[in-house]
């Protein structure tokens, strides 16, 4: 990615681990966010660019195991870090229980918020395996959805929690 482009001055190389693989991006302009690097340089478009100011959660990723907004991480800050994006949540082409639950519950409409919600819900269920509705609402308050009114998203998280409990 990024071939054939002549980026502006102050360029650097970033090496980090993304979804378990060590990757590098070259010619990165210092002002590029991790979100931009993931999308435009590493071809991982799953993290979405809805607000680019940390207000919508559409670019939620794990950075060293912590849920963060990739738009608020400067590309260079990812150097040497471990990142898991929505593309790394499922395995071997199979959906994770959280992803399955979103499909099943009808929690996806336009879906632009979905990748961020998948990562945020995944993080919630790691921390609290059987959250109450109130806990779900507080945990997902940083993920804006404009289509669904959230009802089916909350259903999906409950559904995923039940699915994960059964598989344990």
């Amino acid at each position: 990615m990024g071939m054939g482009r002549t980026p502006p001055v102050g360029l650097m190389r970033i090496t980090c681990t993304v979804n378990g693989k060590q990757v590098s991006a070259d010619d990165v302009w210092a002002g590029e966010s991790l979100l931009y690097v993931l999308r435009e340089r590493l071809g991982l478009f799953g993290s979405k660019n809805a607000c680019e100011q940390g207000e919508c959660g559409s670019c939620s990723v794990y950075l060293d195991g912590k849920l963060v907004c990739a738009c608020l991480v400067l590309g260079g800050q990812a150097e040497g870090r471990e990142i898991v994006t929505v593309e790394g949540i499922g395995s071997d082409g199979a959906l994770h229980a959280v992803q399955e639950a979103f499909v099943e519950a009808g929690a996806v409409q336009c879906g632009f918020c979905t990748p961020g919600l998948i990562v945020a819900a995944h993080d919630l269920l790691n921390r609290i395996p059987e959250p109450s509705t109130v806990q779900i609402r507080e945990a997902l308050a940083g993920n804006i959805c404009r289509c669904t009114g959230y009802a089916k998203i909350i259903d999906a998280v409950h559904l995923a929690a039940r699915g994960l409990a059964q598989s344990r």
Partner: peptide
């Protein structure tokens, strides 16, 4: 200086600031 980036990155993403340098403290 930039740490969590929750303020600085908004400035950069929204093209409100182009500091000559940033110093990452993380």
């Amino acid at each position: 200086p930039i740490a969590g980036g929750t303020d600085v990155m908004v400035e950069i993403n929204f093209d409100r600031q182009r500091p000559a340098a940033v110093i990452d403290l993380t």
